[in-house]
């Protein structure tokens, strides 16, 4: 059992949970994830470890409540128990020891790019972060990323920071030169756009993928993604891959596999008085 220590709303449907998980907090590395399950009958949900405090024995999870299962997770209040957390899973980010990296985060993906930026900064890499959201209220982890290096905030509506997409800011940073690698995490269209910006420049680009997953140990193959025409399992071969090799169309498509079931799940929850 894992105890919820804090529950903070970061953006309209984005919640940060701090939860006890001493072993995972102690050994997790940048880029790794956990799978959580809120109780009997619940789905197993993969979540990147956004932050960890080894001394306190806690990890931080950032959850966008889009479906019934994630809504149940973010409803957990301090003092309540999260039944199952398994991890840390997936390969850790390969961290260079010098140079200049740009970390691009879109929406809730900013919480996933945060541990990468943290790992890079700790390894001695100069970090520039470019983060974005639809509008001001959707911008998350700004303070945490500012502590790690220059941070450019973009909003689609111009309500905060730079008016425009993260790719616009990325183009400018790349134009200034000296960038060795780009790490991008966010919605599929954003990651694809970042990869297309960096491809002509030949800048090494890493993306973190979030396909549908059950076990997280390579056992089910549900999370398969095509990388350079080869099938890989995101849970054990990833979740980070060369952004120039990812078949984003297939990823986006497969993410929609159970869309038709989501409404049924929500209707059911309403009937059960949880909705």
């Amino acid at each position: 059992m894992h105890t919820i220590l804090s529950n903070t709303q970061l953006a309209p449907n984005v919640t940060r949970l701090t939860v006890t998980a001493p072993r995972i907090a102690q050994i997790r590395q940048a880029g790794q994830f956990v799978i959580v399950r809120s109780g009997p009958g619940a789905e197993r949900i993969p979540l990147t470890i956004a932050d960890a405090d080894a001394a306190a024995g806690t990890i931080t999870l950032v959850i966008q409540a889009v479906g019934q299962s994630t809504k149940e997770l973010v409803a957990l209040q301090p003092g309540e128990e999260l039944r199952d957390i398994v991890g840390p899973l997936g390969r850790a980010t390969e961290l260079p020891e010098h140079g200049h990296a740009v970390c691009v985060g879109g929406g809730v993906g900013t919480a996933v790019v945060h541990p990468i930026a943290q790992g890079l900064a700790r390894a001695g890499v100069q970090v520039t972060s470019i983060i974005g959201g639809r509008s001001r209220e959707w911008v998350i982890f700004e303070e945490e990323l500012r502590a790690l290096g220059t941070t450019i905030v973009c909003t689609d509506d111009g309500s905060y920071g730079r008016h425009g997409f993260v790719t616009d800011a990325l183009r400018d940073v790349l134009a200034a030169g000296g960038v060795d690698a780009v790490y991008a995490v966010g919605p599929v269209p954003m990651m694809r756009a970042v990869a297309e910006v960096t491809r002509p420049l030949g800048v090494h680009t890493i993306v973190s993928l979030n396909p549908i997953m059950i076990d997280g140990t390579g056992m089910c193959g549900g999370c398969r993604v095509s990388i350079g025409g080869e099938t890989k399992f995101a849970c054990v071969d990833g979740p980070e891959f060369d952004g120039h090799q990812v078949d984003f169309d297939e990823l986006r498509d497969r993410l929609g596999t159970y869309r038709q079931y989501e409404q049924a799940a929500q209707d059911h929850a309403c009937k059960m008085g949880q909705g």
Binding site: G41, A42, E43, R44, Q68, S69, I214, D215, M219, C220, G221, G222, R224, S226, T231, E250, D253, R254, G256, T257, Y258, Y261, A264, A265, D267, H268, A269
Partner: peptide
């Protein structure tokens, strides 16, 4: 990798371990 192709491991895990046959009483579809 089309939608609708499963490994037997995934299909059976969804139905058995996650009890997807009893969706939406169990949340995994």
């Amino acid at each position: 990798n089309l939608k609708g192709v499963y490994s037997a491991n995934e299909y059976l895990t969804r139905v058995n371990l996650m009890a997807a046959y009893d969706f939406p009483n169990n949340a995994t579809p």
